[in-house]
C-alpha cells in the first residue's frame, strides 16, 4: 500500500507542473497586458498617459521580461514564499482574496458531494431492486431531466420560485442583518439556509449521473449466484442486498470522486455567479474580464490543484477498498 501511495503522489508532480504552465499560459493569452488596460482606463477618464510611467510600471511588475522568466518568477514565488502576486484590480495581495473564497468553494463542493451520495445511493439501490416499478420510472425520468438542466438555469428557476412563493431573495450567503454580525447560532442557521439552494443545484447533475451508474452496477450484481446462495440461507432481503451486492457495486462511488470534483468545481463557478455567492466563481470571471492576471492565474491554478488532490484521494480510497488495484 505504501508503495502505491508513494508512486501515486510522485505521479502528481508532473501533472501539477503541467497545470501551472497551462494556468500561466491561459492568463497570458489575451492581447495586451494589465498595463495596457490600465492605460485605456486612464485615457478614458481623460487622464494623460505618460509612456515612461507605463514602461516603469511594466518593469516593476516584470512584464518586460521574456515569458519563461515571468513564469519562473510567478511559480517560484508561489512555491517558495506562498506569494501569489498582487491583484492589480483590487490592489491587495492575491492570497488575501484567494483563501477565504477558496475555502468556501471547497465547503460548497464537499457539502454537495456528500448530499449527492446521500440521495443517489438509496435512490439508485431502490431503482435497481424495484426495476420497472413506478418509483424506478420516476427516478429514471428525473435523472434524465437532472442531466439536461444546466446548473445556472436551475438556480435561476429556484430563485424565481423562492421570490414568487415566499417573497425572499435567496442570493448571497447571509441575510442583510447578519452580513457583518459576529458569529452566532442564528448567523450559522442563516448561512445554512442560504446554502440549501446552491447545494441542491450543484448536486443535481451529479445525483442524476450516479443514480444511473448505481442502478446499472447493482443490476449486474443482483442476479449473481452468491446472492441466490445468501437468499437460500434465509437472510432477510434488505439485509442481504445491503451486505453483499451493494458493497460490490459501491466501487464506482469512490472512483467517481475523481470526475465529480472537477464537475462540482466547474458547476460551482457558474452557479455562484448566478446566486451571487462569495466563492471563486464571480471573482474569477471579474479577474478574467479585467485581465487581472495574477488573480485569475492563482484561481485557475488553485481550482485545478484542488481537483488533482480530489482525484488523488479517490484513487487512494479505491486502492484501500479494492486490493486488486494496489498490486496492479
Amino acid at each position: 500500500m505504501l508503495h502505491y501511495v508513494i508512486k501515486r503522489v510522485l505521479y502528481m508532480i508532473p501533472t501539477m507542473i503541467a497545470i501551472s504552465i497551462v494556468a500561466f499560459l491561459l492568463i497570458q493569452l489575451p492581447p495586451g497586458d494589465f498595463v495596457t488596460s490600465l492605460a485605456a482606463q486612464m485615457s478614458a477618464q481623460g487622464d494623460s498617459v505618460d509612456p515612461t510611467t507605463l514602461a516603469m510600471l511594466r518593469r516593476q511588475y516584470g512584464l518586460d521580461q521574456p515569458i519563461w522568466v515571468q513564469y519562473w518568477i510567478w511559480i517560484s514565488n508561489i512555491v517558495f514564499h506562498g506569494d501569489f502576486g498582487r491583484s492589480f484590480d483590487f490592489d491587495v495581495p492575491v492570497s488575501d482574496l484567494l483563501w477565504a473564497r477558496l475555502g468556501l468553494t471547497f465547503v460548497l463542493a464537499f457539502t454537495a458531494l456528500v448530499f449527492t451520495w446521500l440521495v443517489a445511493l438509496p435512490v439508485g439501490i431502490y431503482s435497481a431492486v424495484r426495476k420497472y416499478s413506478v418509483g424506478d420510472y420516476v427516478a429514471t425520468f428525473l435523472s434524465f431531466v437532472g442531466l439536461a438542466v444546466p446548473n445556472f438555469l436551475l438556480a435561476l428557476v429556484l430563485m424565481y420560485i423562492a421570490l414568487q412563493l415566499f417573497g425572499v431573495s435567496i442570493d448571497g450567503l447571509y441575510s442583510a442583518q447578519y452580513a457583518n454580525a459576529p458569529w452566532s447560532w442564528e448567523k450559522f442557521l442563516d448561512l445554512a439556509q442560504h446554502l440549501v439552494v446552491p447545494v441542491i443545484v450543484l448536486a443535481s447533475s451529479g445525483i442524476a449521473a450516479l443514480v444511473r451508474i448505481m442502478r446499472a452496477n447493482l443490476l449486474d450484481e443482483l442476479f449473481k449466484p452468491y446472492v441466490t446462495t445468501a437468499r437460500a440461507k434465509g437472510l432477510s432481503e434488505w439485509r442481504l442486498i445491503a451486505k453483499y451486492p451493494v458493497r460490490a457495486a459501491l466501487n464506482p462511488f469512490v472512483s467517481t470522486i475523481g470526475w465529480t470534483l472537477p464537475e462540482l468545481v466547474s458547476g460551482a463557478t457558474v452557479t455562484a455567479i448566478v446566486l451571487n455567492l462569495p466563492t471563486t466563481g464571480p471573482l474569477l470571471l471579474r479577474a478574467l474580464i479585467a485581465q487581472d492576471v495574477y488573480l485569475a492565474g492563482a484561481m485557475i491554478l488553485m481550482l485545478s490543484v484542488l481537483t488533482v488532490i480530489g482525484t488523488l484521494i479517490s484513487d487512494l480510497l479505491l486502492a484501500w477498498l479494492d486490493p486488486r488495484i494496489r498490486y496492479r
Binding site: I19, I27, L29, P30, P262, E263, S266, T269, T307, V308
Partner: peptide
C-alpha cells in the same frame, strides 16, 4: 487525456473564452 480531464472545464473555458479578442 487524463491531464485535460483533471482541469476543471468551466474555469478552463472561461480563461480561453476571455482571451478571445
Amino acid at each position: 487525456i487524463e491531464f485535460l480531464l483533471a482541469i476543471p472545464t468551466i474555469p478552463l473555458w472561461m480563461g480561453l473564452a476571455a482571451a478571445i479578442p
